[in-house]
Simulated assay, not measured.
Amino acid sequence: MDPTAQQTQDPARRAVELTRTGTGRYTARNAAGAEIAFGKGEDLLSPVELLLAALAGCSSVGVDTATSRSAQPTRFRVAATGHEVVEEGARRLDGLHLSFDLAFPDDDGGRKAAGLVERLIALAHDKHCTVSRTVEHGAPVGHDVAVALEDPAGREP
Rank of each mutant, 00 (worst) to 15 (best):
E84V: 15
T8G: 02
G62M: 10
G22A: 10
G95S: 15
S68A: 13
P73Q: 11
E88I: 06
F100N: 03
Q6I: 07
C129R: 00
L45Q: 12
V131M: 08
P105M: 03
G110Y: 00
L98Y: 09
S99I: 12
G39P: 07
V48K: 07
S70C: 02
V63E: 04
P140D: 14
R75F: 10
G110K: 00
R77M: 11
K40L: 12
G142W: 01
A53L: 11
R20P: 00
V63A: 06
E118C: 01
R14F: 11
G33L: 08
K127T: 14
G110D: 00
F38D: 01
H97R: 15
A31Y: 07
L50F: 01
A12R: 13
V63I: 15
E88Q: 14
R133M: 04
H97W: 04
D94A: 13
A103Y: 06
L55S: 12
E35D: 12
R69S: 06
D126E: 15
L120M: 10
A12I: 08
L55A: 15
L96W: 11
R91C: 12
G41I: 08
T67C: 06
E49N: 07
A71V: 10
D144V: 02
A56P: 03
A54R: 05
V145P: 00
L116N: 01
L123G: 07
G110F: 00
G138N: 11
H143W: 12
A53N: 07
V16I: 14
A113D: 02
K112N: 00
L55E: 11
D144S: 14
V63W: 08
L50P: 04
G22L: 06
D126I: 07
G41M: 09
V48H: 08
T27L: 02
T65Q: 09
S132K: 01
T27S: 01
S70P: 03
F100G: 03
L96H: 13
E118P: 00
K127P: 05
A90G: 05
A28C: 09
F104A: 01
S60A: 15
I121V: 13
T21W: 00
V85W: 04
A34D: 13
R13G: 01
G62F: 11
H125T: 03
L52P: 05
A146W: 13
K40I: 12
F100Q: 06
H97I: 03
T67V: 11
A32C: 01
H143F: 13
E49L: 10
A37S: 12
A53Y: 03
R133Y: 04
D106F: 02
E42Q: 12
G115P: 01
D126S: 06
Q72H: 14
Q72P: 02
A124V: 03
R29W: 04
A56D: 02
T21H: 01
G82W: 08
R69M: 09
E88S: 13
A15E: 07
D94V: 12
V48T: 11
A66F: 11
A5V: 05
A56S: 10
P105T: 05
S59G: 15
L123F: 13
L123P: 00
T81W: 04
G22I: 00
H137T: 14
L50W: 04
C58D: 04
L120C: 04
A28P: 06
T21S: 00
R92M: 11
V145W: 05
R29M: 12
A113P: 07
G142P: 00
V135H: 05
E42A: 15
S59D: 11
S60E: 08
R20N: 03
A122Q: 05
E49M: 09
D144K: 13
A37H: 09
H143T: 10
R91Q: 14
S60W: 07
